[in-house]
Design a protein around this nucleic acid. Structure first.
Lengths: 193, 193
DNA sequence: CTAGAATATGGAGAACCTCTCCACTTGGCA
DNA sequence: TGCCAAGTGGAGAGGTTCTCCATATTCTAG
């Protein structure tokens, strides 16, 4: 992660500027309208034509992916910090909570993430995000296992899918802010059994 | 449930026929293409113009809702049967599994269901479905509680949301048929703790 | 059995959507 | 400064959901 490879960084300063403005407008639009946000409008809000938008991000998904990438970086950093916590089980829980909460912050991101991760090969960047999260999660899960705080049968991939599923559910029920935490408690109750 | 109130049952026989054909085409289309199925095509497949389709079902959601209703009826029947099982905890689990599996059968239904249930007042029929499922689930949960097989803190609504969330997740990962069961096992592991 | 009212139909088209194409402009380097 | 690769914008293709209403069909009352 944190690769921001040159391939998608425009050579010209004005183009780089446009790219940033599109990204900013997209963040705002997705946060407000969820996955139904219109790319046309995002382009307009960024003061940019449709052609320009699609030059920078060839598809709606490409745009979402770019936004996800930043979140994933943050999540991995959080995970690394939590790996030093003495309470291994708690660290794993806290991190899964963070994953779910991050995923919820921007509506529609979870769906995109899941959709693409489940059909590998669709998007290289997203696959890299997935690997990075998985690796971070594996560290925490292993520590929890070594402390006898997680059964060896549990898979980190399933655990992350679970977190995303709960995030998605609480996205749907925006009027119940406590839902995510309740669902996490409910679903993770048997973790250390 | 099973109300099929007259309000949405056409007066003329030909119209009733068209309605059935649309419903059948829609079932097929949603099962195959998921939520991305096109209403235009559904109408065409049913041999009916767009105007006719929208006369019978004013929106995409109305169509989905009608399909959901049949599933809910079946689910409640299953729940009633399971309420006679001697193993109360197992019955609850089996029923939640059935809920999730039903929800998964027709891609996109879960999302519709959740979306509307969470914003009450959007659709009366869907609200009725929700109530029916909730009531059935409450019976099973109560039995499990009386057998000491479920903590009193757990809410049936949360449990159902959980089941739907897992169903949604396994919809996304169509290539991993075992996912739903693994997630259910994982998430319900702590139920009787 | 028939006429008239009530009901239902279909498809053109409005208003959106995503995404492509390419004649044009512009920034940065020699 | 002048050139050209890089970047732009917007018209338009082809999709979507959904509306409107002149036309056609069924049912009902006489």
């Amino acid at each position: 992660m944190t690769d921001d490879r040159a391939s998608q960084r425009p050579r010209r300063a004005d183009a780089r500027d446009n790219r940033e403005r599109i990204l900013r407008a997209a963040r705002a639009a997705f946060a407000e309208h969820g996955p139904r946000a219109s790319l046309n409008r995002i382009g307009a809000a960024a003061g940019v034509g449709a052609g320009t938008l699609y030059r920078h991000f060839p598809s709606e998904q490409a745009l979402l992916v770019e936004i996800i990438r930043a979140d994933v970086d943050a999540l991995c950093a959080t995970g690394r910090d939590l790996a030093d916590e003495p309470d291994a089980a708690g660290a794993l829980r806290d991190w899964l909570r963070a994953v779910a909460r991050h995923a919820t912050a921007m509506r529609g991101l979870v769906a995109t993430h899941m959709a693409t991760v489940s059909r590998p090969g669709t998007d290289a960047t997203l696959a890299a995000c997935h690997d990075a999260i998985r690796a971070t999660g594996a560290i925490l899960l292993n520590r929890a296992r070594n402390h006898g705080a997680a059964p060896p049968t549990v898979d980190i991939g399933d655990l992350l899918t679970l977190a995303n599923a709960l995030a998605w559910a609480s996205e749907q029920a925006a009027d119940d802010p406590g839902l995510l935490d309740r669902l996490l408690d409910l679903a993770l109750a048997g973790l250390d059994a």
